[in-house]
Simulated scan of single mutants.
Amino acid sequence: MKSCLIVDDSSVVRKVAARILEDIDFIVGEAEDGQEAFDKCRQEMPDAILLDWQMPIMSGLEFLKLLRAYVGGEKPHVVYMTTENDIGQIALALKAGADDYVMKPFDRDILEAKFQLETAG
């Protein structure tokens, strides 16, 4: 089974995303901020990461840059999550190494579509 780390400071968002991803056969882990996520990635690199933009301690963008520079950090399929409809922020995330993005609030169909490629592999 594929693994996905959900990184968001909102426990509600993490729980909703976890339920959807578990339904499409992901083993799900959770982190509240970028630092916790990076620590978990150093222990075991997930196949995919659903990453929030704004978080305390370490932002999604800071985490993404650190992840992609880390040995094995190029591997996870990273879907960037933001509530802000700002093309500039999305462009920064994609430039830093995000593979895709999703706007919050998301629904089951949107999230499944973003991670469907992962379940095929």
Rank of each mutant, 00 (worst) to 15 (best):
Y80Q: 11
K65F: 02
K15H: 14
W53N: 05
V13K: 04
T82Y: 13
V79I: 01
C41D: 06
K95L: 09
M45N: 09
S59F: 01
K95S: 15
R42V: 07
D100E: 14
L21E: 04
Y70L: 13
I87V: 15
M58L: 10
I20D: 01
D23T: 05
G29M: 14
D8A: 05
A120T: 12
H77T: 06
D39H: 10
F115G: 09
R68N: 11
F26G: 01
E44V: 07
D47Q: 02
G29I: 08
Q89H: 15
R14P: 01
V102W: 02
R108K: 10
T83K: 13
M55S: 00
I49H: 02
V102C: 05
D23E: 12
A37E: 00
P105C: 06
C4L: 06
D33Q: 07
K40V: 13
V28E: 04
V12M: 11
M45D: 06
A37P: 05
K114Q: 03
V12Y: 08
K104I: 00
I24F: 14
A120L: 14
R42H: 11
H77L: 06
Y80G: 10
G60E: 11
Q89P: 02
S3G: 03
L111G: 03
R14S: 00
I24C: 10
Q35V: 06
F26K: 01
G29A: 10
V78A: 07
I57T: 10
K65S: 03
P105G: 04
D39T: 05
R42T: 10
L64F: 07
Q54K: 11
F106W: 00
D109M: 13
K15L: 13
I90R: 07
G60C: 12
A17V: 12
Q116H: 13
P56S: 07
V102P: 01
K104R: 06
N85H: 12
E44Q: 11
A98Q: 10
Y101W: 06
K40C: 09
D25W: 09
M55I: 03
V79A: 07
P46N: 05
L67P: 04
V13T: 02
G97P: 07
V12W: 01
K95C: 11
E22P: 07
E44I: 05
E30K: 02
A18C: 14
